[in-house]
Design a protein around this nucleic acid. Structure first.
Length: 165
DNA sequence: AAAGTGATTGTTCAC
DNA sequence: GTGAACAATCACTTT
């Protein structure tokens, strides 16, 4: 029983029933600000996401965390591979192959990411409602609390009782 | 030279 | 609730 995709891989991309990219509504807009011209949503609003200078960057999701590790392994076995897309594709496939238990450690990371991100969002939200017209720099460093709490986040062992077994 | 792109999935925000 | 956008990476591509 080989997997339906079989080797899929098809270096080329033909149509492929999965059409990975086509599925992605965006296709590619991550780093193309010039191409983006408020065509999608309204984006006309002055305060849309892209306009947020204070918006904290989103931490890597479970998949990204796994991908980082996967990149190392992949590059070791495929030092010739230079396309990031190759690793991404391989990683995506492998990611789906992983079980919840395997993704657990990665998901755990994402859980932490949320905690930190949540704090960021709080500050970010604060500015959002506060900033109406300007004062963008007004609160440059107003919120000093938060952060700087390096007490010991190392106690993050979570360990939710392994249920396997 | 430097920004942009490609490809993956997940997460999150805004409407 | 849905959709649209963005998060890292790295060699290559384009302006």
């Amino acid at each position: 029983m080989k997997i339906a995709k079989g080797k899929g891989e098809s270096r080329k991309d033909k149509k492929e029933a999965l059409k990975p990219v086509e599925d992605r509504k965006v296709g590619k807009r991550k780093a193309a600000p010039k191409a983006i011209k408020s065509s999608k949503k309204k984006a006309n609003n002055d305060k849309v996401r892209k306009n947020d200078p204070n918006r904290p960057k989103r931490p890597p999701s479970a998949f990204f965390v796994f991908l980082e590790e996967f990149r190392n392994t992949y590059k070791q076995e495929h030092p010739n591979v230079k396309a990031v897309s190759a690793v991404a594709k391989a990683g995506g496939e492998k990611w789906k192959s992983l079980s919840d238990a395997e993704k657990a450690p990665y998901e755990a990371k994402s859980a932490k990411r949320k905690s930190e991100y949540e704090k960021l969002m709080t500050s970010y939200n604060k500015k959002q409602e506060s900033s109406d017209d300007d004062d963008a720099d007004g609160e440059s460093e107003k919120s000093k609390s938060v952060v700087s709490n390096d007490d010991e986040e190392s106690a993050e062992e979570d360990e939710e009782d392994e249920d396997d077994d």
